[in-house]
Design a protein around this nucleic acid. Structure first.
Ligand SMILES: [Mg+2]
Length: 253
DNA sequence: GCGACAG
DNA sequence: ATCTTGTCGC
């Protein structure tokens, strides 16, 4: 919590941030205050904490898929847990809350992380990796939703987006699993992956605590019948259904 | 100033 | 993201 210092002059007040306030609290506060200037500062600050050299997600057991849905000022979130050994969804969690931050390209984490975390913090276990519907490293300041969340939670994360935010790339060949590199400012920031023939490719980028190669490999391994990884497809469907059920109940009141 | 622009 | 029925193509 901020420390408010009331000075002798009543109209002068300085708000100091406790040096122990962690970045998670900082992020949630910035979102609530809709402070885009502070949001950009945090992104530039946390950028140095990104780690993509980790090699601990070679064979993950539990994988989480996250997605949100909206209706006016209400946000709905679904977390789907995929058992990568049983090859099936083993748990589904839903929650809802008020939208705290508007959608601004480049600042999606401040809109979606708060509502996601509200549900995530209630869980009593941690998955081996979390996949988000959006970019990770493939961000103007390398701080997409997946990366931001991966830093705050200190857990391996991957960004799985349906369209580009930044960067240039060659359109991948029109065949299953064809992919190309996504570049930005002279560095690779992710991959453009065509999961099926004749479908629009998706954008994969590491979030945090995972390498580029492992991110791409895991996403490809999660391909089933749909364009999106099975866990992301399920998260999307689940969240949409959850929202509809809620709205249905509301309408008959 | 203009165009791009995750969900 | 959301608004929405039928329709074209692999
Ligand atoms: Mg989404």
């Amino acid at each position: 919590m901020p420390i408010s210092l009331a000075f002798p002059l009543p109209h002068i007040q300085i708000v100091l941030y406790n040096r122990f306030m962690n970045y998670l609290e900082e992020t949630l506060k910035i979102a609530k205050n809709r402070d885009t200037k502070a949001a950009k500062k945090v992104q530039m600050l946390l950028r140095d904490k990104i780690s993509l050299n980790d090699n601990t997600v070679i064979n993950p057991h539990f994988i989480m898929g996250v997605d949100l849905a909206y209706d006016k000022d209400m946000a709905f979130v679904s977390i789907v847990l995929w058992d990568n050994i049983k090859e099936e969804i083993v748990s589904v969690f839903n929650d809802k809350g008020k939208v705290v931050f508007p959608y601004i390209p480049g600042f999606l984490s401040f809109r979606e992380f708060p509502i996601f975390y509200q549900l995530y913090e209630k869980l009593t276990f941690e998955p081996d990796v979390i996949i988000f519907d959006g970019h990770g490293y493939a961000h103007p300041r390398r701080m997409g939703l997946a990366t931001h969340a991966g830093i705050l939670l200190d857990i391996p994360t991957i960004g799985c987006a349906k369209s580009k935010l930044v960067g240039t790339y060659d359109v991948p060949e029109n065949e299953e699993n064809a992919y190309s590199e996504l570049h930005h400012k002279n560095e690779i920031i992710g991959y453009v992956l065509r999961t099926r023939k004749n479908v629009k490719p998706i954008f994969i980028s590491p979030g945090n605590h995972i390498s580029f190669g492992q991110s791409l490999k895991l996403i490809i391994s999660l391909k089933r019948k749909t364009k999106l990884p099975v866990v992301m497809q399920m998260a999307h469907r689940t969240c949409e259904a959850y929202k509809r059920s809620f709205l249905a109940i509301e309408r008959r009141k």
